[in-house]
Amino acid sequence: MSAVNLISAESIKLFSTRSPWWCNLLAMVLPVGFATAAVLSWPTDVPISVTEVQMGYQFGMMLVLVMAALAVTTEYRFGTMRTTFQAVPGRSSALLAKTALVAGVAGLVGLVAALGSLGVASVLHPVSDLGLGTADELRAVLGVAPVFVFSAVIAVAVGLLVRQSAGALALLLVWPMLVEPLVSVIPTVGEHIQQWMPFVAADHFLRGERSMIADPVLSPAMALAYFAAVSVGLLAVALVVARRRDA
């Protein structure tokens, strides 16, 4: 069964209900809104950095996680996953098509959110020389796209494993927002463990020296590779489980 057809089928599914539209819209609007608020309250004569303008990416990332997880869990809830598996009994190809579509959309959303934040900030704060000149700036802005892509992959995998909206969302929101930051509170080992937390690694990729890791082992590029590896690994596990399990 050709990949193009399966991805096209998944896109009909994704865009024929309202909640993905809302999630994606909010995922673009909230970071831009955050950038706007940040720039407007920044002193007009002091330059603001690109990294500071992009701080709101986390809002977008949470909504991308929600969108991607719901793309899977609503299918389980309404029984359309069974219809999908009936139409594509190999299962993996259909699920990979879904992952590819959802991740692709997430990447686009990330790009729009990041460029939108940058654009709004440069218009509202002309004193700052906001651009994509340095490697750090490029990463902070364009890097949002791959981070959203792999976040979506993680969310799809968790959705496949948990199969239930409330459970999957609780896990996907509490993990990056609470578990990963709190790990650093553990004395002695906390900070060392924390940099191996996937979303902390993604943050390190985007923000480099400004991330919360005090003494990073991985370079920003390697941190992204690590984040990608975790997401792909989790997806592989989820695909194996989904193939074996009764639909």
Partner: peptide, 19 residues
């Protein structure tokens, strides 16, 4: 086994596309 917010046509269209 149909998403309640999806139209009948969209439901059949995605199924048709997979095959």
């Amino acid at each position: 086994w149909v998403h309640p917010n999806r139209s009948a046509r969209a439901h059949l269209r995605w199924m048709a596309r997979t095959n």
